[in-house]
Write a protein that binds this DNA or RNA. Structure first.
Lengths: 356, 356
DNA sequence: TGGTCATGATAAATCGATTGTTCACACATA
DNA sequence: TATGTGTGAACAATCGATTTATCATGACCA
């Protein structure tokens, strides 16, 4: 009986199915290290062109692909970058993701996705990601009080780029890539001012959120330049969601009551909030833009499809993603602040804003 | 002069900064293999509980994290899963992504993102991902004619789960995870029928798209059960985008002209199309739902925030992501078809549909 | 023509965790 | 008491690419 051989007919192929560098080298009749150097285009190798060609041809013919594990073990780099944002389900960061992914792919890097909350709560995930050298670098969305210390820890252990955070805390921690929030909100506010609005309100994200503070700051500055002011009574701070926009406008409407002294225009902290505001306006019988103009920071794909189409100012999210990846890949990122000014914030004047 | 030592004061820490398994073993006064087995909870190890505790304590105290490269090299698994969809910028797949990521994270796996087009066009990316064993498994969105052969190739080289594709081609290729398209579209159609609509039209994605065919099929079946039919003249097939919905409704309006014989309700192939239709309706002076009811397949977060809020039927995208990951992680996936029926498609009757 | 230097290819070590194999010890039975 | 069996831990090999150190060869100069 030949039980063994019949039980495992193809045991030989079982073990290693891939083509090793050694196989390529053997096929090209060179040593393994030389093959490695040729394939990695080591400039110190001055082998005959014919030899190089033989190696490349053999690699191509055998379909050689370097073993990731071995390379990672030796070189201590994984070819992976982490991208950690606050809410993966939010459409707000799709452009950031897209930009980062494209730039990463162009350099044969891959992106792994993380969630900020997970990094905060799941100690295991934190360890694997940060201490385990699972990724070569991390792009993390910043701007959250209790989280800042954690980011500092991470940045200490791993090349890190912070995205979309206030410049203050990042100065010595990690490089920052951010949009020109001031220019964007100023542009939006000036658009409303130019339309003749003088009393302008605001519904935005958490009051303490640094991003919110930057945006409010921009609005204030632009209003001040025109001799106007931002009144607390015209301001609501909740979250960055559509629900918050909805609740926010209802809150303002309650404050207004039947009084005729109220803002003629409102700024939304982001386009999600703007969407919620449009819905609330419809429910309340407020006609936009006749009774109220609405303009939102942070354009998204949806803005132009709304009825009425939402006036926004676009932030260079895609470029931020690209830049963040480039920072991580080029040189060891020094702590610096990069405000993306190309392209500059762009005003999309649509149907929700009109002359007062 | 002690130039050397002053030039590199902390050279000792330079080389290896991580804690190795050997360090843990030394600290716990056991051998490296034993430490490995204890940390991996090998059931064959019956070391004294005290010994085990010492190993675990040492690992904890030193902050040990296994080196990914070494583990990958030895075990031939990367702890990564690939997720490849058609358009990462599309908000349609956020729930799928979220579900897959959550389930992966629960098993200490990470997700790397890919783009279908890239996999088609970039030979390099294909090689790295598929042949390079960079990931342990792949979730890929299927349902595209010329791409199906490629998926078969991939599935041959790598554990693969196809998401959201027609059952036909996947039978022998890889397991499939899909929503119950038939039930969903039937539910939507019956909702319109129940409201008294008898002539119902459709604007959907590419005619040849298998997903589209399933959805159209469902509509046809439900209409047939009620003694109605789907007329070609009431049907437009473009893409899955909001722009397509916009263009589609304008096309239908042109066909209708001044004739009063036209559908009283339209079904949108997905909610993006529905959004575009709402905008076109507003432009054309068609009041929804008074003049025309609109209902869309595939609920997304935006539907309820539109004005008027879009009636939809939700697909279990999140559960599909979870299931796909679970399939890849549990056992080697056999070719099978899993239609997610829990939760079942859920009708969200909102403001865009009304009695005829 | 012999010696030295430059150049590039090869040999051997390395990265760190895992796993098949061997070994030692203890207990039980003859 | 001696041998056999079983159990659990240590030894050593392995995964595959990279890189340092070593060696051989050729050229060029004296």
């Amino acid at each position: 009986m030949q039980g063994e051989s019949s039980q495992e007919p193809n045991r030989a192929r079982q073990r290693r199915d891939g083509v090793r560098l050694a196989d390529v080298a053997a096929a090209a009749q060179v040593s393994t290290p030389l093959a490695s150097r040729v394939l990695n285009a080591d400039p110190n190798v001055r082998a005959a062109d014919e030899t190089k060609a033989r190696v490349l041809e053999a690699a191509e013919r055998l379909g050689y692909v370097p073993n990731i594990g071995a390379r990672t073990l030796r070189q201590r780099r994984t070819g992976l970058l982490g991208l950690v944002v606050h809410n993966l389900s939010s459409p707000i960061y799709l452009d950031l993701l897209q930009g980062a992914r494209t730039e990463a792919a162009a350099n044969n890097y891959f992106l792994v996705l993380g969630d900020v909350d997970e990094l905060l709560t799941d100690e295991e995930a934190y360890r694997i990601l940060v201490n385990g050298k699972r990724i070569d670098g991390l792009i993390v969305q910043g701007g959250h009080g209790e989280f800042d210390q954690r980011i500092a820890d991470i940045a200490h252990a791993l090349p890190t780029v912070i995205v979309n955070a206030p410049p203050t805390l990042t100065e010595t921690v990690a490089p920052l890539v951010a949009p020109d929030e001031g220019a964007a909100t100023r542009m939006l506010t000036e658009h409303l001012l130019a339309l003749g609005h003088t009393r302008i309100g605001l519904i935005s994200g958490p009051r303490d959120s640094p991003t919110n503070q930057l945006r409010v700051e921009g609005v204030r500055a632009a209003l001040a330049s025109a001799g106007c002011a931002l009144h607390d009574v015209d301001t609501v701070h909740l979250t960055w969601s559509a629900e918050a926009g909805h609740a926010g406008l209802r809150e303002l409407a309650t404050r207004w009551g039947n009084s005729s002294t109220r803002p003629t225009a409102l700024i939304a902290g982001n386009s999600l909030i703007g969407i919620g505001m449009l819905r609330a306006a419809a429910e309340l019988g407020i006609e936009v833009p006749r009774d109220l103009s609405i303009a939102a920071v942070h354009d998204t794909w949806i803005s132009e499809h709304l009825v009425p189409a939402l006036t926004t100012v676009s932030l260079p999210l895609r470029e931020m993603g690209e830049t963040a990846v480039r920072l991580l890949l080029t040189d060891r990122p020094e702590a610096q602040q990069i405000i993306i000014s190309d392209p500059p914030p762009l005003l999309h004047a649509r149907a929700t804003t009109a002359t007062n």
